[in-house]
Design a protein around this nucleic acid. Structure first.
Lengths: 297, 297
DNA sequence: CATTCTTACGTACTGCGTAAGAATG
DNA sequence: CATTCTTACGCAGTACGTAAGAATG
């Protein structure tokens, strides 16, 4: 039995599936499965009922979960107590997508700087695919981006989720009913540039319904897109949670459309070569200040 | 940081040296050193002052030791709680030397049987070197014997120590002063057979002093040797702690002799292929019922 | 000079990811 | 048939033991 196994047990219980727990921990489904298999071998009993889509703790599992919480909590306490944050130092070259840059990045920078004064932060705001390329090239070692990455040199850990939806300004006149691709093409579509996570998502959304779609206005800054939308220049696909304040006050309108978009995952991606301590410290703060929904559902 | 490292920290503090801690844990000096090195890297500070013969905890080390005790204690609690002793089953073929067979073996068998009814015990009482051979041949998988073994397929863990000293019966007439090899050869020497741990020890003791020594009476049962000694038939090298009751009541006399014999280690030796759970259960009980001195000093 | 810890190095193992398989609703 | 867990397998990092080295009293 070891700490990793107990942390995994907790993560599965929190997120309801081996796969999601893996995403949160930066491990694969298979690895999570192996860890639980070992833990079950150790206690000599099954910890989960694997019936169907949702795993369920057995009584023994619940029992062990209690211990695991105390246990892991105490272990964290030890590490906090002996690892002085001042000792953690190094260069953090962090790429972030606009969604983050315009919401909780200031909080991240503030907390990171206060807690780990030894860290030097170098920021790179860009689109998902641009950041991915920078990670591969090694010009940044960390990134917060949409989706997750599947590269042997990189490790992805889920931060949270946001839902994207078609959004319009106050002035644009639109029918009250649920709108489909054929309705939207009547209006100017404002999108992020080709390198964004959205761009292919939008293309597929139109294609799936057989609607020819031509991009008219694109920009590489999400905040600019939002401002243009607010000014009534067109319709754009925007993260609803991120712009919930503008939507609540009526400056932006969330449109009823079909088909729906699935929630988008945002991940913390690190190059595997970086110092684990710096990476863990950064990710801890990200989890703390992140504004994203913790669940995909 | 992991449990092994914390257990190692505790063992070093308990036994005062890396090497002894290693013997207790069934690991080498070098491995213990590496475990502490890693732990020190983790907390970012030295845990021990390595000045001279005795290692000393630093303040940080003492601090961490406190946590380690709680931590490891709790971990043991978990394992006890979830591993039902009834689930532990298997064949335990255990070799024991006479010293053990005639003292705490009954307690061992009783406790082992009560606590782990699923275990089948097959005992093999014999001399150290005989048992060692049985271990190598695979006819037994566990042994409690004198000294320790250094075989890649075997693992030794220290149980405790006993001191051996020249012992005579009530009736034998001997001078009051401290006796040397030249004095003892005047009397019949009763020894264990050639395969015993003692045999070469006794030979060396005489040789070192240049005294020619001829073995007259030997036997493969220590208890028989003790009985013959008690009957006044000669002098024998006996474990003092083991026969402390006979010595206290005057049935056996502990002789003042020189040079002294170093304390003898007794170890629990297991084949590396055996089920770790069965091995750990057995060793736990051995530690609990063992009558041996915990320290070499 | 005996005792103890450290370092260097080769090996064996274990934990991980990929990819394919089986079960479920 | 999409979703989820399990199994098989190969690789890589790690923990271990051996053996030699350095420091201490």
């Amino acid at each position: 039995m070891n700490l990793t196994q107990l942390e995994t047990l907790i993560a599965i219980n929190e997120h309801g599936s081996f796969a999601r727990a893996g995403a949160m921990l930066g491990a694969t489904q298979s690895t999570v499965s192996a860890r639980i298999r070992e833990l079950e071998r150790y206690v000599g009993a099954e910890l989960f009922d694997r019936a169907g889509y949702r795993v369920q703790l057995t009584p023994v599992g619940e029992d062990l979960l209690n211990f695991a919480h105390q246990f892991v909590g105490r272990a964290r306490g030890i590490s906090r107590r002996f690892r002085q944050p001042e000792d953690i130092s190094g260069l953090v070259r962090l790429g972030v997508v606009g969604l983050v840059a315009h919401t909780w990045l200031p909080a991240l920078v503030k907390t990171l700087h206060e807690r780990y004064p030894g860290l030097t932060l170098r920021l790179d705001v860009g689109l998902t695919r641009t950041l991915a390329e920078h990670l591969r090239q090694g010009t940044i070692e960390f990134a917060i981006l949409a989706g997750s990455m599947n590269d042997p040199n990189l490790m992805s850990q889920t931060i949270g989720f946001d839902e994207f939806g078609w959004t319009a300004g106050r002035s644009l006149v639109l029918p009250e009913r649920s709108l489909g691709p054929e309705d939207l093409r009547e209006h100017p579509i404002l999108t992020l540039s080709e390198d964004s996570y959205h761009y292919p998502v939008i293309e597929r959304w139109f294609q799936k319904s057989g609607v020819a779609y031509e991009n008219l206005i694109s920009c590489n800054s999400m905040n600019v897109i939002a401002a243009l939308t607010e000014a009534g220049l067109g319709i754009s696909l925007l993260p609803q949670r991120c712009y919930r304040e503008e939507i609540r006050t009526g400056r932006l309108r969330s449109l009823r459309t079909h088909p729906r978009f699935p929630k988008v995952e945002f991940s913390f991606v690190t190059r595997r070569t970086v110092d684990e301590v710096v990476s863990a410290a950064t990710f801890d703060v990200i989890r703390e200040v992140s504004d994203l929904a913790p669940e995909a559902a």
